[in-house]
Amino acid sequence: MLQPPGFVNKSFPDHVCRLKKALYGLKQAPRAWYMELRVFLLSLGFVNSTADASLFISQKSGSTLYLLVYVDDIIVTGSSPTELSNLISPLLLDFH
């Protein structure tokens, strides 16, 4: 990507940005975010629903958590409030 206007590196004005992270406007940005979130949720023991890719379900020790992803909005609900807050705090830590 071209260097952003106004913030061109003075020593390397001809250099370009090789994007490592997604940016707004990129075609693959939503997918990159989704994959990032998905990897994180799977590491927490969530299972991606086959019926709806935006639904993640976690069933641990009798409690069930449902997590819905709508682009960058997330709704979490579940039988156990403690599990809920256990989930939210790392989420906020990682992504907020």
Binding site: L19, D72, T77, H96
Partner: peptide
Amino acid sequence: QGWSIRQLDVNNAFLQGTLKE
């Protein structure tokens, strides 16, 4: 079930994504 519902809004969600291409 009377479960509590929490809503999260992720800031700069798209910026979190790592590019592979």
